[in-house]
């Protein structure tokens, strides 16, 4: 009895998680008229690949969108970790005044509305000549992801016993050597977790690519979805759902690949991060 109830509930939970995804995929195989029927069909009556063909052979460069998104998000994750790790190390181990307020301030900064940052960011990138470039986009994403990355990394580094570092210091290691050779290997799951978070935040970011990129071929996937399917004429639900499916798949794969280390990272360090 108890087992039946358990599986019933699990079934319900699976339905809740997967039904919207099912709807996304099913709609992507409907033609434009069937996708907008006042009474929807639960399975496509006349399944069509037209929406996917539209993505691959249509007038919009979807492959570039995909490459742009992947490159800029990976670069952001790498750059953010490169800056965040030493910064977090300094915050974790340093003994200077204002250490506490700085770590807290960083976190709160992450909660500022993105739109407030947009104007100063735009002016900064204009001055640097980085508008309408993937490099500029990476700078934008990093600005946004960095505070969060520092805060999370500080949590992970805090869990590394200071004694290990002292042993390394006695062995004559320099400060940066301690960080690279001792601390980083110890917090690697945490580092991966943080990088994944930064990656996903960037992948989800809509407003920066919409504002900073003006050449369509340099646009990112999420922005392209908004840009191309909800235009002046109508909302093309079939095409949008096909694009959405294509946008979601790589993230899903990436996600499953890192979930194990994320579990380890999250349970390992974040708690001490307080």
């Amino acid at each position: 009895m108890k087992r039946i109830l358990q599986w019933l509930l699990i079934g319900l939970a699976l339905a809740w998680s997967l039904a919207p995804v099912y709807w996304m995929v099913v709609t992507s195989f409907k033609d434009a008229l069937e996708a907008t029927r006042p009474v929807p069909t639960f399975l496509p009556e006349a399944p069509t690949l037209a929406n996917y063909q539209g993505l691959a052979g249509g007038s919009l460069p979807f492959l570039s969108f995909f490459v742009n998104t992947t490159l800029s998000c990976l670069a952001t994750a790498a750059l953010a970790m490169l800056i965040a790790t030493p910064a977090a190390y300094a915050l974790s181990r340093g003994r200077f005044r204002l250490r506490g307020p700085i770590s807290q301030g960083i976190l709160v900064f992450r909660m500022l509305p993105l739109v407030v940052m947009l104007a100063p960011l735009y002016l900064m990138l204009l001055a640097a000549g980085l508008l309408d470039s993937l490099a500029g986009l990476v700078v934008g994403f990093t600005t946004f992801g960095l505070p969060f990355a520092v805060w999370m990394m500080k949590g992970f580094i805090d869990t590394v016993p200071i004694e290990i570092e002292e042993a390394a210091r006695v062995d004559g290691y320099k400060k940066w050597e301690i960080l690279v050779r001792v601390v980083v290997p110890l917090v690697l799951p945490g580092l991966l977790t943080t990088a994944t978070f930064v990656f996903m935040e960037s992948w989800n970011n809509l407003i920066f690519p919409l504002s900073l990129i003006t050449t369509l071929a340099k646009q990112t996937l999420p922005a392209a979805i908004q840009l191309s399917f909800t235009g002046q004429f109508k909302t093309d639900w079939g095409g949008m759902m096909a694009a959405s499916t294509v946008t979601t798949l790589p993230l899903m794969v990436a996600f499953f690949a890192v979930q194990r280390s994320m579990v380890r990272g999250l349970t390992g360090g974040a708690v001490a991060g307080a």
């Binding site: 309408d132 003006t214 050449t215 235009g231 095409g239």
Partner: peptide
């Protein structure tokens, strides 16, 4: 930027550049 009009505006730009070989149009979507 929109799938419905993109082929049209690109054809127009193409045609214009054909008539005016000295002018290049850089479209910002």
């Amino acid at each position: 930027a929109e799938a419905a009009t993109r082929p049209g505006i690109q054809a127009a730009i193409h045609e214009f550049e054909r008539i005016h070989p000295n002018i290049k149009i850089e479209s910002q979507a």
